[in-house]
């Protein structure tokens, strides 16, 4: 593995040409999954195709985590994002503060990537998170 090409933190994160997520979508009912499924949890059908997930969406739920396992930096904002193409994603909301009063649902967000670590061979791990998206010319999404 070359050390100058970052590796994605999970296999459903694609870094090139623009960072985005990939999902398995059920051909029959449209349900979306990030891991492999034998059959669709929603309808039972077994045909899936790989789709690119929209990188914009809105915040569906969040919490500010202050206590976590050793080695995890706190506080951080854990977020559930619903993308514009109705995929649900769990990640962090990347904001400078940890004040819950400043985080409003359904805040519009966009995906971004950052370096989450470097291994012994000098390979960088790229993680993804969401940042608030200003969309002044569009009405706020309603859930």
């Amino acid at each position: 593995m070359s050390s100058d090409v970052p590796v994605p933190i999970v296999d459903y994160l694609v870094l090139e040409p623009e960072p985005h997520l990939l999902a398995w979508v059920c051909v029959a009912c449209g349900a979306r999954f990030f891991d492999r499924r034998n059959g669709c949890a929603s309808c039972g059908s077994s045909e899936f195709k790989r789709v690119q997930v929209s990188s914009t969406g809105h915040l569906r739920a969040f919490t500010v985590v202050h206590r976590a396992a050793p080695g995890i930096r706190v506080p951080f904002v854990s977020a559930i994002v619903e993308t514009d193409d109705r995929t649900f994603v769990r990640s962090n909301l990347l904001v400078e503060h940890s004040d819950p009063a400043q985080i409003r649902l359904p805040m519009p967000v966009r995906l971004t990537t950052y370096a989450a670590g470097i291994d012994s061979r000098g390979t960088e791990c790229a993680a993804f998170g969401y940042v608030p998206l200003e969309r002044p010319d569009r009405p706020r999404a309603e859930t």
Partner: peptide
């Protein structure tokens, strides 16, 4: 050394990076 593993091909534990999986959270 980062090697993809598990159902999501993760190269490191994701708790705290891709949201929280703790029960209080």
């Amino acid at each position: 050394v980062y090697e993809p593993a598990g159902r999501y091909g993760s190269v490191m534990p994701i708790d705290g990076i891709l949201g929280t999986s703790t029960m209080p959270g």
